[in-house]
Amino acid sequence: MFYYLNVIGTMAFAVSASLTAMNKKLDPFGVFVIAFATSVGGGTLRDVLIGYTPVGWMRDLNVVYFIIAGFALAVIFRKKLDKLRVSLFLFDTIGLGVFTLIGIERGIATGLHPVICVALGTMTACFGGVIRDILCNEIPVIFRKEIYATLCIVGGIIFFTIRNNFDINQDLLYILVSAIIIVLRLLAVRYKWYLAPLDRY
Score class of each variant (00 low, 15 high):
F13S: 07
I142C: 09
T10A: 10
D27T: 05
S16W: 05
F66W: 14
T124Y: 02
L186P: 07
V183G: 03
I94P: 00
I142N: 06
F2A: 03
P140D: 00
V48F: 12
F99I: 13
K80Q: 15
V75M: 12
S178I: 14
F71Y: 12
V63T: 14
Y3E: 05
T53N: 04
I67G: 01
G111K: 09
L45W: 09
G42C: 14
V63F: 09
G97R: 00
V55M: 03
L176T: 08
L195I: 15
R46H: 11
Y3T: 12
F36G: 01
G43L: 13
R46M: 14
A179K: 03
A119C: 15
L49H: 08
L26D: 01
R163M: 10
L135A: 04
V63Y: 11
W57Q: 02
I108F: 10
G111F: 13
Y65A: 13
I139T: 13
F159T: 01
L49W: 09
A74T: 06
G41Y: 11
L198H: 12
L101Q: 01
T44N: 05
Y52F: 12
G121K: 10
C117Q: 04
L184F: 02
L49D: 01
V86F: 13
F77R: 09
I180F: 08
N169F: 02
G128A: 11
W57F: 14
I147L: 15
I34N: 00
V7P: 00
F71A: 03
Y65M: 14
R190T: 14
L198G: 05
I102V: 15
I147A: 13
Y65K: 09
P54W: 04
A109F: 13
F66N: 07
L120E: 01
P54S: 02
H113L: 11
